[in-house]
Simulated assay, not measured.
Amino acid sequence: MTPQNLSATVAVGSVIGTIPAIGVTTLLSTAVAARFRLNIAATVLVSYLVQPLQILLAIPFIRLGINLFGMEELRLSLGEMQVMFQTDWLDALSKLWLANLAGIATWAALATPIGATLYFILVPVFRKVLPRPVTGSLDSDFTPQV
């Protein structure tokens, strides 16, 4: 892989791996990697490796989305969610669904700039780390034997 391809693969896998929607990373990373002709297996692997960040960033994405879209503040502690579900589980599901959509929208707005930044940071790093391809020069008087 070239440094550019590897950088794009890592950037795409990292960004997709942090989407605040559990269970969609494999399908989404496969589709994006296939579309941009990246290494699908490597992209999916990177998205799996950053999934701890997905769990850590889900609540911040959701909170930021709630603030950006002017939604009603949502309490996201376990006890408060249990009370919400005991009071009216359908309303609780609706609120959590909308809050998660706001988090996904926030992620989508930030995905391209963060991915591009990550790509441009990784290209020079991979140029230094990856072995350079061997380029041999052929003598002009060399004729292959048939």
Rank of each mutant, 00 (worst) to 15 (best):
I59A: 01
I22Q: 04
L78V: 10
G13T: 00
E72P: 10
Y119Q: 01
A99S: 03
A111Q: 05
F85K: 00
P113E: 06
A41F: 00
K95V: 08
L45W: 13
D139S: 12
D88M: 07
V10S: 02
D88S: 06
L74D: 06
L110Y: 09
F126I: 00
L98Y: 15
V83Q: 11
E73C: 04
L27C: 15
E72C: 11
R37A: 07
G115R: 15
L27Y: 15
W89Y: 06
R35N: 08
A21Q: 13
L68P: 01
A102F: 00
R127Y: 05
N5H: 10
R63Y: 02
R35M: 08
E72H: 08
T106D: 00
G115V: 08
L93C: 09
E72Y: 00
V125W: 08
L96W: 14
L74E: 08
I19M: 11
L28R: 07
L76F: 08
L74A: 09
G23H: 02
P60G: 02
Q51P: 04
M81T: 05
V50C: 09
L28M: 04
F120P: 00
F61A: 07
L28D: 02
I22P: 04
T18W: 13
V44C: 04
N39F: 01
Y119S: 01
G136A: 12
V123P: 07
Y48L: 11
I40S: 04
G17E: 05
Q54K: 06
K128D: 12
L93P: 12
L56Q: 15
V129L: 15
R35C: 01
L74S: 01
T9R: 06
R63F: 15
F36E: 06
F36K: 04
A105W: 02
F61Y: 13
A41I: 14
T30V: 10
L98E: 14
M81A: 07
G65V: 08
T87I: 04
K95L: 10
F126Y: 07
M84Y: 14
T9E: 14
N67D: 08
T26L: 11
L27V: 15
